[in-house]
């Protein structure tokens, strides 16, 4: 397959994943509302919001870095997705998976937030700075158990290539990482709670306490871009987790079902629990999940 066709297929799958990610956000908003006894917004509300934000006639910019913030963010989202093989064994949905892509993907997960920090900083709004500080602190904290969990996988499978990790999990449910290396999965799933920023780790984007966190100053199409990225990024993360821990997917339907179920884990927790303060969240991540992660590595080293 030539590079151009590969690129075209990657963008097609990116489109599918964006739509799926945004729909997932809509479904989750609906579920949250039903749990709270409300009817909730329609499932396609995220799409309307994005259209509306992009249809704004004016947008305010505070300089080049402010402009680049959402661009970095969406580059982080797309970059994360581009290096994850979405469907195992599919010629068209394997994207740009290369050897060692786990590290690239982990870097891209961090990248967007850093770009956002620079952009939001130029906005000059104090709440942006508070939101960014909280976001980066929490991110650094949940990276620790997640990184430990990935290292544990590398030790287990002797590879850093996602495709090979998925290949090693083929052949029945019992060969998934979930059952061969449960400690690493526990650490990673707890890290995912922080990554998805639902309760109890939602203080970064808490709407009323520090108005909306880092994107306080972002308006119009900037906001639309950030919302689009949220869709891509959510789906990309779920695909990554599916590949690393839940045996990957061999077709599109399996992918959608599995990502939905994985996402549901954080929704269950989010509906049931109140919010952590930032310092409590950091303390939480650096205690039990980190220990579990270390244990997951130790098991395979001994």
């Amino acid at each position: 397959m030539s590079l151009v066709t590969k690129l075209i297929w990657t963008f097609i799958s990116l489109g599918i994943v964006t739509i799926w990610g945004l729909t997932l956000t809509g479904i989750v908003a609906k579920i949250f509302a039903r749990v709270q006894g409300r009817l909730g917004p329609p499932v396609w509300q995220p799409f309307i919001d994005i259209i509306k934000n992009n249809a704004k006639r004016t947008a305010v910019s505070h300089g080049i870095m402010f402009y680049l913030g959402p661009v970095f963010r969406i580059a982080g989202g797309i970059g994360t997705y581009m290096f994850i093989p979405a469907i195992y064994g599919s010629l068209y949905f394997s994207n740009f998976s290369v050897s060692g892509d786990v590290f690239l993907v982990m870097y891209f997960i961090f990248f967007g937030q850093l770009g956002m920090a620079l952009g939001a900083g130029e906005g000059g709004h104090p709440y942006s700075a508070i939101g960014v500080a909280r976001g980066l602190a929490q991110m650094t904290a949940f990276e620790v158990p997640f990184a430990l969990s990935v290292i544990s996988l590398a030790v287990q499978y002797h590879t850093l290539n996602i495709t090979e990790i998925v290949a090693a999990q083929q052949g029945g449910i019992l060969s998934w990482t979930l059952f061969t290396n449960p400690l690493a999965v526990i650490a990673a799933m707890i890290a995912m709670l922080g990554m998805n920023m639902y309760n109890p780790f939602s203080v970064v984007i808490a709407p009323q306490e520090t108005p909306i966190g880092p994107p306080t100053e972002y308006s119009a199409s900037f906001l639309g871009m950030l919302a689009t990225n949220r869709g891509i990024f959510n789906a990309a993360k779920m695909v990554l987790f599916m590949n690393l821990y839940f045996g990957g997917a061999t077709n599109l339907v399996e992918m959608i079902v599995k990502t939905f179920c994985i996402y549901f884990f954080s929704v269950f927790i989010g509906v049931a629990f109140p919010r952590f303060k930032t310092e409590d969240a950091i303390r939480f991540f650096l205690k039990v999940p980190t220990l579990v992660g270390i244990l997951a590595i130790a098991v395979f080293l001994i």
Partner: peptide, 19 residues
């Protein structure tokens, strides 16, 4: 809140004038 729930009409309160 649950009784009137404007979010079903696509409305939501927003904390910053920019958005």
């Amino acid at each position: 809140t649950a009784r009137y729930d404007i979010s079903r009409l696509g409305m939501q309160p927003r904390p910053t004038p920019r958005q």
